[in-house]
Design a binder for these strands. Structure first.
Lengths: 347, 347
DNA sequence: TTGTAGGCGTTATCAT
DNA sequence: ATGATAACGCCTACAA
C-alpha cells in the first residue's frame, strides 16, 4: 500500500503538480477534462495529503496566551499550570509559543487588567478560564473583534464567540456526588451542602453542582434526605460548622462544592462520635491528606491539568495540521477514593 | 522571540549549514574553533530543531500491526478496536499504516498463528495484548530478534524485550474495589470473589486483582469480612450462584474480577430480598444496563480504548518526531457508577 | 575540514 | 488553463 503524492498523481494524470494542486484546493482555472481526470484519480487512490509537508510549507509561528487564576493564591490551579508547561515543552519545537498570565481569582479588575495586556500582544489564540461570568463575556467580545481565537476551560459559558470549551458537565457532577452520598449515608438523614469560596456571586460553578446534587436526591422514591445549603467564606466556616455539629441533630453527610473541602474535614475531625461522610472536589495536597485516612470519603476530580493540556493541544493541532477543534469537549468526571487518587495525580 | 533555524545559526557563526548540522549531530569533522563557536551559539539561542522539517526529511512510511483478541468473541475488546481505528484515521496522513489482527482469546494456537502471520509482514512495530503469558514471551523474543518494536497493553509482563506497557496496576485495582466494598457492605459480612472467564490458567489478570482485594480487606483493623473465592466458567455460574444464595448465609457483597459481572448481576436479581452489593469491571453495554438501575453498584473501568489509542500514539510520535516512549504508562483506574459512566463511554 | 546542492511533499508565484 | 520553479527547515552526499 503505497503512499501517493501530488507528484505521483500528476504523472498518472499526465498533468503538472500545479494542476493537481488547483483541483485539490478547488481554485478553478482548470479545464474540465483535466479536472475530471484528476478528481477521478484522487478518488480511486484515496489521496491523503501529507500533513507534515503541508505544515512545513505553512511554517508560521503561532502565539497562544493562557490566562488563569494565580495558582499561588488558589492551589486548585496548580495542575492547570502543569498542563500548560507540558504543552509548552511539547510544542516549542513546532514553532508554537505559549505564555502564561495569572490573575487574582477574587478580583475582577485583576482579570480585566491581564486581559488588556494580552490583547495588546495580539496573540493568535487565548485560553481563558472564565471564572467571572460577566467580565468574561465582555473580554471575549474584544478578542473576537480582533480575530483572536478564544478557547475556554473549567467554567462553561454560553456564547458563540467561543471556539472551544474543555471541561465538565457540572450538573452531572453534582448528581454523581449525590449518588455516592446515597450509597454511604443512611436514608432520611440530614445532609449539608456547603459552598466554600471567597466569591460565589459571579460564578455559576457551585450553583450548578448544587442543582444536580439536589435534583438527584429529591427524585429518590425510597428515601427523603433532609438537605440544607450554606454559602460560607472560609473565615466563617469554623464557627458556623461547630455550631451546626454541636447542636443535637442528625447530620450524616456533607457535600462541599469546591476544592476547599479539606477545611471541612479538618473541623469534622473534632467530632469523632458523629459518623459524618464527606464528599468534595479536587486533588489538592490538603485534600489527599484527608482522603488517605478516609476523613474525606470521596473526591471528585475536575482534572484541571488535563483540561488545560488538552485545550492547548487542540489549538496547536489546529494551527499545525488544520485539525478541527470540537466546540465542546466534556471530560469524564472522576470519582476518587483513598486507593485510586495517585492515578490522577502522578502524571 | 524569533525562531532560529540552522541557516540563521550558520550565518551568525560565519560557517555553513553543513557545519552547524555536524555540530548538532556530533558527527565530528569539525575544527575546534568552528565547534566552539557553534556550540556557544546553540546554547545561547537555545536552539530547537524544527521537528516538522526533520520529520519531512525522514519521510518514511511506517507499519504498525495490532494484535488483539477478537472483539466479536469478547466484547471487552470492542473499545480497543475503536481506539485503534481512531489512531488509524489520525495517522494515515502522516505515512503511518496500522493493521489489525484478531485472535481467539480462548485459544493459544490462534494467538500463535496470528503472530506468525504478522512476523512475516516484518512491521516496524507491533502492539500486542499478551493475554497468554507463556506464549507471549516466546513471541516477543521472535519480534526482538527481527528488530520489531514491541508495545504491550492491558496485561503486564515483566520482560525487557518490551518497549512499552500501557495499562493499569492490577493489584491496586483490586484494592480500589475493596475500599468501595468496605464503604457499602456492613462489617464482618461475607463477600464472594468470583473469577468468571473461559481461561484463567494462563492469565495473571484475575489473580492480581484478587490479591489486591484480599490484601486491603484483610488489613482492616475494625472489621473482619469473610471472603470466599470461586473460579467459574460462565456455564457453571447459574447453578453455583443459585446454590450459594439459596442457602442460609449472609453474603452481602460480590466482587467479580472480569467484565462478565453482568451475568452475576442478572442472577442476583432473582434474590430481591438479599441486599447484595456488586462490584465488577468494565463498561460493556450489558454492564451499563445494570449499573444504570443500580443492580451493579460500581464498575471499574480499565479503559481499553484509551490503552490502545495511547499506545499507538506513543509509537507514532516516536517514528515521526523521535519522541521517547516511556517504558510504562499506568492509566488511572476509574471508579464508575450510575451517574458518571457516559463520561467514559462517549468518546 | 568545509561548503554546496538537492530533495522530502506541498503550495504559491510567475511566466507561458 | 497550464507547467515550471522556488521555498518552508532539515539532512546528506558529494565536491572542494
Amino acid at each position: 500500500m503505497k503512499k501517493y503524492t501530488i507528484k505521483d498523481i500528476a504523472k498518472l494524470a499526465g498533468v503538472s503538480k500545479g494542476t493537481v494542486d488547483r483541483v485539490i484546493h478547488k481554485r478553478g482555472k482548470v479545464s474540465q477534462t483535466a479536472l475530471d481526470k484528476v478528481t477521478k484519480l484522487l478518488e480511486e487512490i484515496d489521496y491523503q495529503p501529507n500533513l507534515i509537508a503541508r505544515s512545513l510549507k505553512n511554517s508560521k509561528s503561532y502565539h497562544i496566551c493562557v490566562i488563569q487564576p494565580d495558582p499561588e493564591i488558589d492551589p486548585y490551579w496548580q495542575p492547570c499550570t502543569k498542563g500548560v508547561n507540558d504543552a509548552i515543552n511539547e510544542y516549542k519545537s513546532f514553532g508554537i509559543t505559549i505564555d502564561s498570565y495569572y490573575f487574582n481569582h477574587a478580583e475582577t479588575h485583576s482579570f480585566l487588567k491581564v486581559n488588556e495586556e494580552v490583547l495588546k500582544q495580539s496573540p493568535d489564540a487565548v485560553l481563558i478560564t472564565p471564572v467571572f461570568h460577566k467580565e468574561s463575556i465582555e473580554v471575549i467580545k474584544k478578542y473576537n473583534a480582533n480575530n483572536v481565537i478564544v478557547s475556554t476551560i473549567n467554567d462553561p459559558l454560553e456564547l458563540n464567540g467561543i471556539t472551544s470549551y474543555v471541561g465538565q458537565d457540572l450538573i452531572q457532577s453534582g448528581r454523581i456526588a449525590a449518588r455516592l452520598m446515597e450509597m454511604i449515608v443512611p436514608k432520611n438523614k440530614e445532609i449539608l451542602i456547603i459552598h466554600l469560596d471567597e466569591v460565589f456571586n459571579n460564578s455559576i460553578h457551585m450553583q450548578l453542582k448544587e442543582k444536580g446534587f439536589k435534583n438527584y436526591l429529591k427524585n429518590l422514591s425510597n428515601s427523603n434526605y433532609n438537605l440544607k445549603t450554606y454559602s460560607l467564606q472560609q473565615s466563617d466556616l469554623d464557627e458556623k460548622l461547630h455550631s451546626l455539629l454541636n447542636n443535637p441533630n442528625n447530620v450524616s453527610g456533607i457535600f462541599v462544592t469546591t476544592s476547599k473541602v479539606y477545611s471541612v474535614a479538618k473541623i469534622v475531625q473534632d467530632f469523632p462520635d458523629l459518623d459524618i461522610k464527606i464528599i468534595g472536589y479536587d486533588l489538592l495536597d490538603e485534600n489527599i491528606k484527608y482522603i488517605k485516612n478516609n476523613a474525606i470519603d470521596f473526591l471528585i476530580n475536575q482534572n484541571p491539568k488535563h483540561q488545560s493540556y488538552l485545550c492547548i493541544t487542540q489549538l496547536a493541532e489546529y494551527f499545525l495540521f488544520d485539525k478541527k477543534i470540537p466546540k465542546q469537549k466534556l471530560l469524564p468526571i472522576d470519582i476518587v477514593n483513598s486507593e485510586n487518587f495517585d492515578g490522577y495525580t502522578n502524571d
